[in-house]
């Protein structure tokens, strides 16, 4: 089932361009540690994009697993769960400052006993992507790196524009963005309100899902909903082993095999990204989505039986 990549010339150029512009992976040195402790994954992600690493953060191990592109230095200490960061450890590390979100309001009196707490409160009324940009700006102000924040945001905009241009005029189908739930009957479908949906929008792609969404932007729904838009493509977030197991279960299902997008071979795996990320995740996942959508112009690469059709 190895996807035979056949990007045409224009796509190849565009993708090469994005690789050159990529804000991460291309950077050589790991960012230096600042005496700051961070309680949230998205703040840490934005901070690293500004070229500073926290001294300690909550859920550092989960961050390393979910945001592999962010390259958190090994020296950054683990503080445990973000809803109960280890205060004794925090005090031992003696940061000069603690960065947290409104979600930690209840913890502020405790954290204040170690170091001054700055709550980064991005405007979240205009969607996750706009929230991410606002977070980057506010973090830049808070860290005295407003210039870096402006530059990072401008770079992200350029890259998103480039990706959108590469896909423009291609008459691409609407897209279902899903994660598989083991058992073979349900999916997590992402829609309006979620960062992944913002990535689709910024690429000029339409989200095929018309289900009503809660504010956080995803629902668990039956696989049959993929038949609501027979012409759609399905992008499956790839979480590794669980996703492979779920796919194996789905291959045994006649309903799944006959769902129009699956039967027509318009299903692709996309390396998973966290829905709780900010601008760097947005750019990353947009790049990956563009990467799989562009070669989808080639004949069907995926067929449920595993053989090329």
């Amino acid at each position: 089932m190895a996807p035979a990549f056949r990007p045409n010339r224009r796509t190849a150029l565009a993708l090469a361009g994005t690789a050159l512009l990529a804000p991460r992976g291309a950077r050589a040195a790991a960012p230096a540690l600042a005496p700051v402790a961070v309680m949230e994954l998205d703040i840490a992600e934005a901070m690293l994009a500004l070229g500073v690493a926290p001294l300690a953060m909550a859920e550092a191990s989960r961050f390393r697993a979910r945001f592999p592109g962010s390259r958190l230095p090994a020296a950054c200490a683990e503080l445990g769960a973000s809803w109960e960061p280890n205060l004794e450890r925090l005090q031992e590390l003696a940061p000069a400052r603690v960065l947290a979100s409104r979600d930690r309001e209840m913890l502020v009196p405790l954290l204040e006993r170690v170091a001054p707490v700055t709550l980064i409160e991005p405007d979240d009324t205009r969607g996750r992507a706009a929230r991410g940009a606002d977070l980057m700006r506010r973090l830049g102000d808070a860290l005295g790196r407003a210039g870096e924040a402006q530059a990072a945001l401008a770079a992200a905009e350029r890259q998103l524009a480039l990706l959108r241009g590469a896909l423009a005029g291609r008459d691409l189908p609407p897209v279902f963005l899903v994660a598989l739930v083991e058992g073979g009957t349900h999916l997590e479908i992402y829609g309006a309100g979620c960062l992944l949906d913002d990535a689709l929008r910024r690429l000029g792609l339409a989200n095929a899902c018309a289900l009503p969404m809660p504010s956080y932007g995803w629902v668990i729904a039956g696989i049959e909903h993929l038949a609501d838009r027979p012409e759609a493509a399905v992008l499956v977030l790839d979480f590794g082993a669980p996703t492979r197991r779920a796919l194996a279960q789905l291959h045994r299902s006649p309903l799944w095999r006959n769902l129009p997008p699956v039967a027509a071979g318009r299903l692709r795996l996309v390396e998973a990204a966290s829905v709780w990320g900010g601008v760097p995740t947005l750019v990353d996942i947009a790049g990956r989505i563009a990467g799989v959508m562009a070669p989808s112009l080639a004949p069907a690469l995926y067929s449920p039986t595993g053989t090329r059709s």
């Binding site: 739930v181 083991e182 058992g183 073979g184 009957t185 349900h186 997590e188 668990i220 039956g222 696989i223 979480f239 669980p242 789905l250 045994r252 299902s253 006649p254 309903l255 799944w256």
Partner: peptide
């Protein structure tokens, strides 16, 4: 947390089917 959806569905007994198996 990763497997939350699958576990909840199982514990809660969903009858949704994807074939006759």
């Amino acid at each position: 947390h990763h497997h939350l959806s699958a576990l909840f569905l199982w514990q809660a007994g969903s009858l949704a089917q994807n074939g006759w198996q």
